[in-house]
Amino acid sequence: MSDMNECTSKIWSRFEAKKQDGSVIKLRIQSWQLQSKDDVYEFILKHFVSGEAIHKAAGITRNPEALKEYGELLDLHFKVAPLCAEVCCVDNDGTTVDQILGVSMTQLMTNTQKLEDITKELDLKTAEIQQLLHAAKVLEGYLQPHISSYNTFYFGRGLIVHPEYRKLGIANEFIKVRKLVCIANNVPMTCAGMSAVGSQKAAEKNNWKTFVDIPIDELEKNTGLVFEKDSILNHNIMYTTTE
């Protein structure tokens, strides 16, 4: 954990949560300077890729070569467009992060940027990553009609909470912070595709609206992926503005 001991960044939120055993834990959300192969990078590969519905349906974690290519895709995102990340950790009244409990990642985009422009230099070989990118392009098609009035916006690239720290309100706090980041950086809107019920409920609780609600059957038809029906009912592209 040596990479995290010297991490100092902006603190967006401090809050308390009650664990199942009744004890209270102090938590905070703070910015993280993303770097290739750092602790957040490893957290995403371990928890987000294996748990997020679309990544899971694409089968990335079942193929070591696909997981390696996903890492290359992350590296490319670091280079092409600014990525913004916040982490949740136990609040020790400082800025040292001893353990990452959750990650929220967004990317500053313009309404003229397309995924194809970002990934065109990659020669992707695994079927799993090709399926993932095809699904992403399909979802981009759903989003495009809604973003023409926003010159810039933050697009969600992932929100994941460590399995042992779920149901503590961390996702809800991440959703709150995404709007705070918009306000602080004078970006008018942030949006994200949300498949997890927990993320959708957190967004609704914070008055996010829905650009489009995609039924799971329609998403399967258009992407070619097969989802676990007990874990996803629909895919919402949700948003909030600074107005």
Rank of each mutant, 00 (worst) to 15 (best):
A136K: 01
P188M: 07
V24R: 14
I129V: 04
T8V: 15
G169K: 04
E86Q: 13
I60K: 00
G156H: 00
K201T: 13
M4K: 10
C191I: 03
W12V: 12
D75M: 04
G198A: 05
T112F: 14
I232P: 01
A17K: 00
A57H: 02
L132K: 00
A135E: 02
E218P: 07
M1W: 13
C84G: 12
G193Y: 02
K68M: 01
S148G: 15
A192Y: 00
E140D: 08
H235R: 10
P188Y: 07
I160D: 00
S31F: 03
A202G: 08
F227W: 04
E72D: 13
S50Y: 03
P163R: 10
V97P: 01
D39W: 09
E16W: 10
E140C: 05
L67Y: 02
V197K: 15
V90I: 11
V87A: 03
T112S: 14
K10M: 13
D39P: 11
Q35M: 12
A17W: 02
P163K: 08
P215R: 13
T106W: 01
S50T: 08
N222V: 08
I147K: 08
T106S: 11
G59R: 03
I44W: 02
S23Y: 10
M109V: 12
F78L: 10
G94W: 08
N111G: 11
P145W: 09
N185M: 11
E243H: 12
S36A: 11
L219K: 02
D217S: 13
T95V: 14
D91G: 05
Q20E: 13
R157M: 05
A202E: 02
K114F: 11
E42R: 15
G102F: 01
T241P: 07
M4W: 11
L76D: 04
N222S: 12
Y165W: 12
A136E: 12
K176F: 02
A171M: 11
M4P: 04
G198C: 06
V90R: 06
M189Y: 06
A203T: 09
R62F: 15
M1Y: 12
L73P: 03
E173R: 08
V40C: 03
I44L: 09
L225H: 01
D217P: 10
R157D: 02
Y165E: 12
R28M: 09
K120F: 07
K137N: 14
L143Q: 09
Q33W: 09
R178W: 02
I25G: 09
K120P: 03
T8F: 15
L34K: 07
V103S: 01
E218D: 11
S195M: 10
I60H: 00
